[in-house]
Amino acid sequence: MHKYFDEVVNENKMQEINKKYVLPGDVIIEGNYRPLMNVIKKNNSIIATRIGIVEMGRDGIKVIPLSGVYIPRVNDIVIGKVVDNSSLSWEVDINSCFSAHLPAQDVFGRDFSPARDDIRKQLAPGDVITARIMAFDRTRDPLLTLQDKDLGKIPKGEIVKINPTRIPRLIGKRGSMIQTIEQATNTRIMIGQNGILVVVGDDNETVSLAIKAINTIEEEAHTSNLTQRIRVLLNVPEPSPEDDENTENLQTENSLKQDVKEENDDGENNLEEDEK
């Protein structure tokens, strides 16, 4: 009986604190809670370190930031540009203060020999790649890998850069926003967690319409009814149950995107695990 009462109190507290807007230095809650992301614990109180929205779960408290540059996290899918290579690895610009490295063994296999294999035949400076962050602990530069489905060189497309904190909004709940754009403009959009997107379409008009929608989302990410306004911008009718079925078909057709999205969700979870 007593325990049940306690739980009710906690539920109420959670409701009260979830979705609360915070600024750096704001005390979110006092008590024995676990800090997860963008919060610090000081003298038994949890303090926010970024501008953002509080999310409180059973495992702890975190702040979803609303601004900031990209800091790599393990298992993030990123899109980057090869800027240089040595005889053993490539250096990749991933839109962060740390430049990433892709070891040659990852592409050529364990028996890679700089004398025998020409590293530039696979990737040359200027190439754009989708990669997964294999390891990163802030003490050394992030390591990339292409050893996953749908990772590797991107042959064509238009590169768009947005603020990395807007990526979850761009994807939307279970990918709803990005699917709306893709269906309406008949394009394919690859998303890197580092805020780099590649839009692939058949003609310039559809691509520029998709980019316009993406930029609108970036600018108005924090406003409500955004999905509706994007639908108006793209001339898409309100979704009906039949449309939902179509959406699912598209999802299975386009496995890369779904992968990216799943990774997004995983990325959040992984970070939590990392900080444990």
Binding site: L23, P24, G25, K42, I47, R50, S67, T165
Partner: peptide, 11 residues
């Protein structure tokens, strides 16, 4: 600094 999204203990 807060606008830049840099982790801060306080303003």
């Amino acid at each position: 600094l807060a606008d830049a999204g840099i982790n801060m203990r306080d303003m």
